[in-house]
Amino acid sequence: MAARTIHPNPTQSQKTLYQSGLNLINRFVYTLRRYTAVYAALWKASLTREIMFKVNFLLWVVVELVWFGLQVAFVSVLYLHTEEIGSWTKWQVMLLVGVAQFIQQIFQALFLINCANLSDLVRTGKLDFVLLMPVNPRFLVSLRQVDPSSLVNALVALGVMGYAIAQLAHKDNRCKPCLILIALHSRNPYPL
């Protein structure tokens, strides 16, 4: 019990403990703020870079949209000829396609370019300049470049997901607020 009470006059060792704890928190907050600032600068640099080639940026959005449209078209064509594919209905598959696209686009927006660039950095020796910078090199190598065109397409994927969920909820006709639960529930092999 004695250990738990706070003495009005802390001993020297208690003071040091308190101080080092505070230091740790301060350092954590400082690092967090610093890396947030670095990441914000990286975003800004990536956006500036994209704005330099506006048409190219728009065309990449179109490329991804066309390929996504292709997947949606494939599913639509399949369901012209069948009601179910192994118990999966049309809008369930649409939801799956939407979710897959959303996850892929987010991955593409934040990480993919950096993964692809890593081998080039090693091959050309540019990795040296990354190692010289006063930040964690793994942080910089993984998150340096952002691809905003993929973020645009992630939004489109969200739209498709929303539409598919609405279709599923429309058929299910139960509590509308928990749409995503309905969507998940309809895939549950042991429904309530």
Binding site: N56, L59, W60, V63, V66, F74, V77, L78, L80, H81
Partner: peptide, 23 residues
Amino acid sequence: TFIFIVFAFEFIASGRLFPLDLL
């Protein structure tokens, strides 16, 4: 970008994804 857009059309309209009779 142009190459990938044309490729997407080729992918679906050439019958590579499914037989075109399904359309």
